[in-house]
């Protein structure tokens, strides 16, 4: 199998994830898109690990999974807090930074 088939699949997933993060206005959907990005990264890590016959790729993929779990936990907590404060999780309304 070619290395590139995994890498390109990962690139497609990554870009779809980026699209989702940028285009979605529902906070939950943005979090899901972030998961897509993280998974794309994992495929990359494992593919390079297999390519180099090094177990490090798998180890770091596992670390990424752990970090992703933490990220979802915190992200959902923030979304919940936002919902409680604004009765909405529409990110386009969260524009306090507006200049």
């Amino acid at each position: 199998m070619l290395l590139n088939q995994f890498l390109l699949l990962s690139a497609v997933l990554f870009c779809l994830g980026v699209y989702g993060v940028l285009a979605r206005k529902n906070g939950m959907l943005v979090l899901m898109s972030v998961e897509l990005i993280l998974n794309a990264v994992n495929i990359n890590l494992v593919a390079f690990g297999a390519f180099r016959a090094d177990v490090g790729g798998s180890v770091f993929a596992l670390f990424t999974i752990a970090v992703a779990a933490a990220e979802v936990g915190i992200g959902l907590a923030i979304v919940l807090l936002m919902y409680r404060n604004r009765r909405s999780i529409d990110l386009t309304q969260a524009d306090l930074l507006k200049g």
Binding site: N42, V46, S58, A61, I65
Partner: peptide, 18 residues
């Protein structure tokens, strides 16, 4: 995909955690 790449443990963890 992880299974394709021979990373069984990661694949199982992926299913369990994700």
């Amino acid at each position: 995909q992880f299974l394709f790449l021979g990373a069984e443990f990661v694949a199982v963890t992926q299913v369990l955690v994700y």
